[in-house]
Amino acid sequence: MFSHPADFTPVCTTEMSGFAQRKSEFVALNTELLGLSIDSIHAHLGWVQNVRENTGVYFDFPIIADLDMKVSKLYGMLQPNESETAAVRAVFFIDPEKKIRLVMYYPLNVGRNMDEILRALEALQTSDKYKVAMPLDWKKGDKVIVSPPKTLDELNERLSDDSLEKVDWYLAKKSI
């Protein structure tokens, strides 16, 4: 779920177009898109149609019309020292267990990075699937970090495991 400050504004138009153009990549990761701003449903519809007419990009995912700010407040998207009337650029990654797994907050004047949003999503999913952690700049195909040993027995086992790429006993990587 992600918020944008307002319909018919420039940075938001580039961001929402980015989500729309890469929707198939989110679908491939079994992930639903859900937008939000503090605008009316009529403003949303007008903006979606305007962008489609001007650029051919169609925002084919639900966008919440949060005029009463109910959802914005619930998710901390209203940050009054940044703006009293518009939501900041938030992204909440919510897993199938309804747990919040990753949060991004961007100010009004800086757009988000779609590559990073997709990278973080895939990293979270891969981490869950293989019970591993992801190093700096991890991307699909890179080696992953195996959990450090928690006992001396595990430490000894780690030292004798030649299948891992070991920087040291506490930092070891493997391919998946």
Partner: peptide
């Protein structure tokens, strides 16, 4: 604001695709 590890707050909302019940959206 919800933090990492918190349960995502539930809500109902009007969207460009009609009324949405957040719980029903999740896969």
């Amino acid at each position: 604001m919800p933090r990492i590890g918190d349960k995502a707050p539930d809500f109902e909302a009007v969207t460009t695709k009609g009324k949405l019940n957040f719980q029903n959206l999740l896969k």
